[in-house]
Design a protein around this nucleic acid. Sequence first.
DNA 1: ATCAATATCACCCCAAAAGGGTGATATTTT
DNA 2: AAAATATCACCCTTTTGGGGTGATATTGAT
Lengths: 210, 210
Amino acid sequence: MNDSDSIRIVIIEDDETIREGYAFLIGQAEGYEVIGTYISFDEAVKKIATNAPDVILLDIELPGTNGIEALPKLKKMLPNAHILILTVYESEKLIFDALSNGASGYLTKNTPAAKIIESIKEVKQGGGPMSVNIARMVINSFQKNQNSPLSKRETQILELICNGKSRSQIAKELFIDLETVRSHIKNIYIKLDVNSRSDAIKTARDNKLI
Amino acid sequence: MNDSDSIRIVIIEDDETIREGYAFLIGQAEGYEVIGTYISFDEAVKKIATNAPDVILLDIELPGTNGIEALPKLKKMLPNAHILILTVYESEKLIFDALSNGASGYLTKNTPAAKIIESIKEVKQGGGPMSVNIARMVINSFQKNQNSPLSKRETQILELICNGKSRSQIAKELFIDLETVRSHIKNIYIKLDVNSRSDAIKTARDNKLI
DNA sequence: ATCAATATCACCCCAAAAGGGTGATATTTT
DNA sequence: AAAATATCACCCTTTTGGGGTGATATTGAT
């Protein structure tokens, strides 16, 4: 594989030791070319478009514009680049913020260089590399509560409420009477100990009932 | 590592060749013990509790109770077992159904044995192993539409609507007038070409505006 | 510097919806 | 046999939702 086939990589990371360390380790792998390293998004923004990277390694904690804010801007400038988050942070909120803002993968910094190099190829080929603990958090976010206090019918109706449906819309959809829907909703409210749609939705989401 | 420290594995898979092939390959790996193989959940249900497996490899297409239906039942019988889906199916719906019903990982059947063996250990240790294409689908499910027609404020209000908030609740939360909220909602409806909350929520979800 | 989009607020209208209370009955599950 | 579930009924009042038509100040992009 010659240089023209290499994966073009840009690294945005404020810690010089880490940045240069990654650049060296990745750069010496065959088929990988580090074409730019920057200490911040604000630095990178001047030149990164001409770098035309395939993959961007992005830290979250950066001086000036942070990684999360940088994500949509980078995606706008370079719609075809894959962005791989490389950070020490493992909070749920940051992970989901990153993924919803356009990150194609999420690695924590204890990841060995070999795994990072593999992940770069993986993301280039359309995969979604994640550190094991991140993957588990992502999977957990899908899991429903197995011990819901609600019956099937109640869960079904709660889901429709979460979709913004009115009582009469729910009644039509389920081929039951409006009063039956009311009755179910009342029971849902009692079980969840709430007395409004929004509180029911919040409780349902918090407890992953839906 | 002796047998008592081995990871205890059960395989539920209807194709005999695949089932016995996996059982052999996994069983010969050090630290792995295949303690039961079944052609269906309905077969497995009789004895699986006494197997006390750490990890269950579960196919989705099964005679009788399918894998998705089996998941919650297995989780109820064996709350501490990790269930790894091993299937040819890659449809979004099946993946999310599996994950929300208690699967801890999702592998497609082209996965090499070495990767399966690694994934078993990974899931036992609290990871969330997925095939690369599955991981990308999961990550994509988080991505927001980068070309939303809505302004920031409108998106914010749409999110509150998706949380079931009323106009007045939104007004309070954002410290703006009720009439301002109304005005924003009207503009949201125009932009999304809808005329009700439920349609707005549906359109928002379909287009990943929220 | 200018024009478009955005964010803010105001007042008209009325039908629909939401929530609380109380109770009945048949089916299902345990 | 008892408990939970699913179904429907009628009482009540307040809130909400959606359509229409405007104004004004700020912000953003060209």
